[in-house]
Design a protein around this nucleic acid. Structure first.
Lengths: 348, 348
DNA sequence: CAGAGTTGATTAATCGATTAATCATCCCTG
DNA sequence: CAGGGATGATTAATCGATTAATCAACTCTG
């Protein structure tokens, strides 16, 4: 055999004790009828022999592999570590392994990735869909992490509320002219964040949305965003939909000799690692990935175990599609040093 | 059954054609003796029924799950996306799935993580070890991605050469006083990079190592690094062992009104996503993760398949320990805007 | 004390694929 | 035309755990 299991198996324990494998199985799972003493003896020798059940053998019999798939739009995305770590933690806490699948930013590859996971008999899938992709019914429990405005059942941060929180913060500092910086208008997440922001622009205030991808189409990738000109136009608050463009804005402004935060303020989203490391520290909005992952995994596990219990294809077809009820987790403002009253402060 | 396989199985194909399951297996794998016509018919109906072999069933019989484990010191590390993406890609290209396991920055958890993977019968493991951890013999093929100076067989970037490249670049621009910025002296990778840097300090030049963690122990986490004072002491080149501290240095210098690159230069390592996004773009050294992942996976697969072929425990014990020969992949300098001749340029 | 009910354990089937061993044909040759 | 050799397919065992069905032995109860 290629990779013979190091430990022993049920029949070995059975053999050393002179009982049947079934009894050992019953003793260890506590399911059948086994006398207390024998059960104890079995557990003892199991421990002694360093027995670990073969998940493969169990999987074949029970139809459950104890593995979940995690489909990501693009592993290279800097937000991914947070997600992967939270999901891996929640899953392994629930006794599941996590198989990763990367769509590498391509919708077709996303389908491939999902299929590869299904071929590996995963018990369920967590999908962070690529920009606005709809997840078709794939005959396997699914939890989607995206945005509350995505059709279908999802778990996600409340991006809209997050957007409101940032603008409220900036407005309370006295800002009135806001430049909302987004990457791609096709993203539900980004639209939610911007929508939330707009909904809290104070009366008499002004907000404009600046889409980076559109700007780069004419000015070239990596070009300056022209923020100095925007400052001259009177904008004092630069609220980005993610820390990446926020950092881009921060450094561009610093470079142009515009003081952050004493002259203008900059905020981001997601609280990526370097947000706390740069000088000045970036004010941002964090999502509670731990909570989101817990909800997603819990929902998935619930469906998986319900499937097992009812155990019929009818039930499967009904519950198989989607696992999580719609739920959104509030986001939290993290105030650091890039937000302060504007130079021309006239606080409300 | 919890998750009954959607497709059909061998016996279903066998039944529809009125042949035995063994024949179907032989036909599809091309191993036994099956007539050409029958084989063709079998392949046809297999396709028609949308047959996908149960990897679980196969795993139980062959002892190979077709799954590799990826053990990471800390998923939250910003370098992780590159690694995970490259490994996932190489593995799935080779027909393997990837189970992730996170050590969350803890040595004990690293052992747990490895054990969880082994319990899941992975065919092999790729480990990116936590700072200076030695990987014990775990009775399963292992490829270690770390630093060439790690004892044991590893695949890695040539961090030493990377360090040399940066300093050569900076020296050729006219720099003579270098501040080498590291995080933690316990890291083999960081030490290699710094060692390489030191080895290329030009004659008459001067270099000093600044360890961030040590500095933070006295000044508090997230405190200023005091780079302004270092500039006043005459340092013109700030070469960090990673982009994270490089970015920290860049923003601290900008904030202090010190022009980068017209006054001093800053360089990093790893080419993380935001390095190309900040202004000015960060000069850094990139490692060829795709190449590293390919080598690691190829080595792993080679051992796994050799195990299968020879098929005896003797062979396993010998080859089971470590998969990859020692090999290091050259790093590549990415010149952006943070490196330029110093203000007091006296080019060599 | 015979028959019903419990208790504790065993038997055997099952999940799906693989593969060594076996068997039935057919062909060719001496 | 009998016997050796291919050829093409089937049988049956196997991987390891689970579990329904069965069985043996013992305990009550009427």
């Amino acid at each position: 055999m290629a990779n013979p299991r190091t430990g022993s198996n049920l029949s070995q324990i059975a053999a050393t004790l002179g009982v049947s494998a079934a009894t050992v199985s019953n003793a260890l799972s506590g399911k059948g009828r086994v006398s207390a003493e024998l059960a104890e003896k079995i557990r003892a020798t199991a421990a002694e022999l360093g027995y670990t059940p073969s998940l493969t053998g169990r999987a074949l019999r029970t139809g459950r592999t104890g593995v979940l798939g995690l489909v990501l739009p693009n592993i290279a995305n800097p937000l991914f570590p947070q997600i992967a770590q939270a999901i891996e933690h929640a899953a392994s806490h629930a006794g599941y392994g996590v198989l990763i699948a990367d769509a590498r930013g391509d919708v077709a590859l996303q389908t491939d990735a999902i299929n590869r996971l299904i071929e590996r008999d995963v018990d369920g899938i967590v999908i962070v869909p690529r920009l606005g992709t709809r997840i078709a019914d794939i005959g396997c429990p699914v939890a989607v992490i995206d945005s509350p405005s995505t059709p279908g059942n999802t778990v996600s941060a409340d991006h809209w509320q997050g957007g409101q929180t940032v603008i409220e913060h900036l407005a309370s500092l006295g800002h009135r002219k806001f430049l909302l910086i987004g990457n791609n208008p096709a993203s539900n997440v980004q639209n939610d964040r911007i929508g939330g922001m707009k909904s809290r622009i104070p009366a008499g205030g002004h907000a404009e949305v600046f889409w980076i991808e559109k700007h780069e189409q004419t000015h070239g990738k990596g070009s300056l965003l022209g923020l100095k000109e925007q400052v001259e136009r009177g904008f004092t608050a630069f609220a980005a939909v993610s820390d990446l463009p926020a950092l881009r804005a921060l450094t561009e402004l610093q470079r142009a000799g515009i003081g952050v935060p004493e002259h203008v303020s900059v905020t981001g989203f997601d609280d990526l690692v370097w947000s706390s490391v740069v000088t000045p520290g970036l004010t941002t909005v964090r999502m509670d990935m731990v909570e989101i992952a817990d909800i997603a995994i819990a929902a998935l596990v619930r469906v998986i175990e319900a499937d097992t219990a009812s155990g019929f294809d009818v039930a499967r077809t009904v519950t198989g599609t989607v696992a999580a009820e719609r739920s959104s987790v509030p986001m939290q403002l993290v105030i650091r040093q890039t937000s302060a009253p504007p130079a021309n402060a006239h606080i409300a």
